[in-house]
Design a protein around this nucleic acid. Structure first.
Lengths: 345, 345
DNA sequence: CTGAAAGCGCTTACAG
DNA sequence: CTGAAAGCGCTTACAG
């Protein structure tokens, strides 16, 4: 059985498809179409379970009611939760969302962006990987509405919803300092994105402000591959065999933090007695970890809703790009046992 | 600047768009179009950065190269990882995927299914919520290819990729029995889906086979809302205040397990000495939990790739529905310290 | 070797 | 109050 089309209804009722279209789009009154004709159309549409073909509608109107979302990895709980918020918010506005995971790879990203621009989406929410400046510049020159999340390129004027990474990292480090830790290490990932740089800078600045000099031996920059062995080595150097013993570690992402915690556990080290831990991001894992892990919790709900809001404003603004908005949100520090000295508690 | 269309290229070259379409679709040879014309077309297309409008193509060919995915919640790591595998596999076949989270709610599901059927996707991969039998039956009568994952309705002949939930639960429980636990509790969720029922049945059967009678006091069926308080109460009853003291708990999902572990920790109970723990599903959290949690690890990669494979076969089978395939995979038990008696290890 | 034409299912001026 | 017609950007018989 074929799906019923506008024409089927028009034919069976002996009216034009213009009329059917009008009625079904609620423009019956507006066009002063007689009550009874309206009723007949509506009734038959219901009977035949008519579903307008969105593809045809999209071709004609140039609107797809779909937004594209490119993030690093939907399987990463941070992006999973963020994606869910965006989906929720978009659906309130009648939009669906197409997900793409770039794996922080600029080439994947380029292909996904290209694909999404082939007339499939009305707007984009994007977490651009390192090295995608050119793509974003091109995107900016095209007329398609977009907003960046999680990171942005300072030299490109884009809408962006981000958090204050510097301040959040600063606060996390300061918390460790206040707990009396003296050799605070930082494990981060080899990534040139501004959000990651700011996290490292915030950490360093907090140390400097406390007259603790950031020691290069205490800063580990991991390859993006996130290999278990690399982490085991790094943790071992920081805690057992290295030139500087760390009494606390600040992880700049949850992916790094989870790998690090695994290594800490398999070395049999005690948290926080042997080494205290604070991490960026707040996956479920940190709440059920024993002890629970102190975490920088990003306001995912707000990032999601704001990004959709800004995108909608642009999309409904007749395609005219407004002055770019850069919204900077605060991230809270959830203090848990992994970073609290017992004699303080 | 408008996007360049087939027509733009045809006009500028003084040829027909038929020809341009043919060449760009690699059918130049086939239609014996002269080398030089081909080259000119290709060159100009590149110069103008021509991107075919997929919406128009979709309307004409009836193919969107998109598959729809409806799961419970993309923010749940189980579905996040599964979604990622499906995305990966689909992209190998040139398909993109539209994600929808139903929250296990039949009404949400109905709306999402309806939306996706409005000519937007070529096929569907679905994790149907309880109470959606009618929707699946209707879907089955329509000609749109689909495959179910994670659960199915025994009375409806659908393609389905699932695991042997009964056996996996049986094995997990048997493991606890072998470790010498005598009062093994089960915490599950109030859900009539066949996968959940089988997990409970597998647990009971393992107890029966070991001459341990399943005691109703040891089985807690939680409301789907997953409220913290409900779990605190349940765990307290099982471990401290109840009529039967449990020395081990089997959680039937990771969502339940994570809530349960939180409660266990906040009661200050020791795992596995006070109470041992085994859980269905294997989120990151279980590896970094201290002690790490024994888990039933589902083969997400295989569920993902098989579901896409079966769907592709149907979609490329000229719309003719094949005999439904019901693929049942095995889930492995990852034994970790949360369920191992010290004197055994 | 190449082109004119029809048509996918809609919406939207325009005309009466 | 209602309809004929054009057109969104493609693909695909068909004709020459």
């Amino acid at each position: 059985m074929k799906k019923t089309s506008l024409n089927d209804i028009a034919m069976r009722l002996g009216v034009s498809k213009t009329l059917v279209s009008l009625v079904l789009n609620g423009k019956g009154r507006e066009h002063r179409i007689s009550e009874e004709v309206c009723k007949k159309v509506l009734a038959l549409a219901k009977e035949l379970n008519y579903q307008p073909n969105q593809i045809a509608k999209g071709l004609r109107t140039g609107k797809t009611n779909t937004i594209g979302l490119i993030i690093a990895d939907i399987a990463n709980p941070f992006f999973g939760k963020l994606g869910r918020e965006i989906e929720k918010e978009a659906s309130k506005h009648g939009y669906r969302v197409m997900f793409c995971s770039s794996d922080e790879n600029a080439e994947n990203f380029r292909l996904q962006l290209e694909m999404l621009q082939q007339g499939q989406v009305d707007g984009l929410i994007i977490s651009p990987p390192a090295g995608s400046e050119q793509q974003i510049k091109m995107l900016d020159r095209s007329k398609i509405p977009y907003v960046l999340i999680d990171r942005y390129f300072p030299e490109i004027d884009s809408n962006a919803i981000v958090i204050d990474n510097f301040q959040a990292a600063y606060n996390a480090t300061k918390h460790l300092i206040e707990q009396g830790y003296q050799n605070i290490a930082c494990i981060t990932v080899n990534n040139t994105l501004n959000n990651m740089r700011q996290r490292l800078e915030g950490y360093k600045k907090a140390l400097l402000d406390a007259k603790q000099n950031p020691d290069e031996h205490l800063i580990k920059i991991m390859p993006f591959s996130h290999e278990k062995d690399d982490f085991a080595t790094a943790i071992k150097q920081l805690t057992i065999s290295g030139e500087m013993k760390a009494d606390a570690i600040f992880f700049t992402t949850s992916k790094v933090g989870i790998m690090g915690l695994e290594s800490i556990h398999s070395l049999g080290l005690n948290i926080p007695d042997d080494v205290a831990v604070v991490s960026f991001d707040d996956p479920d894992a940190y709440r059920i970890s024993n002890p629970p892990v102190t975490a920088v919790a990003q306001p995912l709900k707000e990032i999601g809703s704001q990004s959709v809001k800004v995108l909608m404003e642009w999309m409904n603004g007749k395609g005219k790009k407004k002055k770019p908005e850069r919204i900077v949100l605060e991230a809270g520090l959830k203090i848990r046992k992994s970073s609290v000295r017992l004699f303080f508690s």
